[in-house]
Amino acid sequence: MKITLEIVKHIAHLARLEFSEEELKQFYQQMVELLDHFARISELDTENVPPTSGILPLYNVMREDNPGPTLPREEALKNAPEEESGFFKIPTILEAED
């Protein structure tokens, strides 16, 4: 995959971040280097290596289905910029933005 400035802008948009042209160029450069590095790793022969999804030698970590304590509502809403009748209050988000 070849990194372009457009891709960097797209990724920034997905993360809802805004950058100056200068910053975008800097990230562009970093991403190119990063992908070059991965390209080198990809050269390794991994034919007989199973894919790894985690580094822990653990499986099936689970809890029993027992309800436990919850946060008091005041605590839960403490960091909300705005609240109303026990709800978090936010500006309306339309289905499609832009």
């Binding site: 309800p67 436990g68 304590p69 919850t70 946060l71 026990g86």
Partner: peptide, 24 residues
């Protein structure tokens, strides 16, 4: 229809007051 949520132990109920069955 579990008694608690999928990844935390908050109870699952459908008629509770808003934001009373929550945790970090």
């Amino acid at each position: 229809k579990t008694r608690s949520k999928m990844f935390c132990s908050c109870p699952v109920e459908f008629k509770a007051e808003p934001n009373t069955l929550v945790c970090p």
